[in-house]
Computed example of a mutant assay.
Amino acid sequence: MSQQVTRHGIPSGPEAEALAQRLADHLTVQIDELEVSTDLIEATFNTSLLVLNARCVLDPRAAQAETWDAVVNAMQLGSAVFAVTGIEEGTVECRIDRKVRTLPASGPSTMADAGLWLQAFWLAVVCREQQRMTELCEIPLERLRSSDGRYDEYVYHWVDTLQTYWLRRPGLVEKLTTTIQTSDPSVATTIPRDMLQGLMYPPINLFYHFVRKNEEGFGPALVEALKLHRAYWTLTEDRATDIDGTVALGPLAIACLAYDGKLPFDVESEYLPKHLLEHGWLGEYPT
């Protein structure tokens, strides 16, 4: 029997639809401006995430083309952040919003850090963009380190683990073990505990069950991850109305890996839009 995890009641209706359209219009302008300057590419990427979440408020199964467009745009912009910061001069061609665009290089930047890398990687997984996943995983870990100490060390171990998994490098078990150990609340003290336990650790635990091909454990771990996601986003009144909590991106991405890997689980939730999980839009147009 399918296990259901209901999404918390993010307001929808005409106001939500108007918000989604305003955000989408703003994103179109921001994307066009990137061909002049990429100084605000991080802000553009953040807007694309808002559009994605706003679309999934209106279309929780991701059954509409506009929602797939939103996912693809976010994925393309996440990759573009690392493309433009990976070179110091010249330009780089990036497909964004159904068009190949020539973007000026920005050189190394603190915005291209491990936190943004995780979001970009999850989006590439959801879109089944294997080449982008490979390109992201080939980025040296030291390039992703933040100089201001904003991340606990486990975040870098987590990125290293994912890169090791995708590129089939040796040492996966050891690196995943280190990630789990260093993400313990007694060790990881920089991030707020509710965020660590509600948003950051659950994908790690879920990945642990995935790489072990634990058929009995993966489904319950996914349910737990979604419940913790919901608990985090309903802890305060402000969070409960924040569209940032619409999609559980990390758990969704790992559920996509499990789905493609034929690891059975029977979990349904609006936090995991059905047509994204089951790659219903794959191949509709170049991404």
Rank of each mutant, 00 (worst) to 15 (best):
L222D: 02
Q130E: 14
T190N: 08
L162C: 08
I41S: 02
D244K: 14
V71M: 14
C137G: 15
L206Q: 01
Q21V: 10
A20D: 04
E268I: 11
D69K: 09
F265Q: 00
G86D: 03
S186I: 00
T134G: 09
G86N: 05
S12Q: 12
L50G: 11
T38C: 15
E268L: 13
H209Y: 13
F45P: 00
D97Y: 10
E284D: 07
E93W: 09
L50M: 13
G198Y: 04
E174C: 12
G198D: 03
A248C: 12
E174W: 01
S269W: 14
P11V: 05
L116N: 03
S186F: 05
L222A: 03
M200T: 06
N53K: 07
Q64M: 13
W122K: 01
D39P: 02
R128K: 09
G115K: 04
F45R: 00
P108C: 07
Q119C: 06
S37H: 07
D260R: 07
V155A: 03
H26L: 09
K99L: 14
K175H: 06
A221F: 04
Q131F: 04
A221T: 10
F121T: 02
G250F: 02
I204S: 01
L282I: 08
M75T: 14
G78T: 05
T134S: 15
P286L: 05
D39H: 13
K175A: 09
D32C: 05
F218D: 02
R150S: 14
H8S: 06
E138G: 08
I254Q: 03
L19T: 07
P11F: 08
S12M: 06
S147F: 11
D184K: 02
A120Q: 02
W117K: 02
K274F: 10
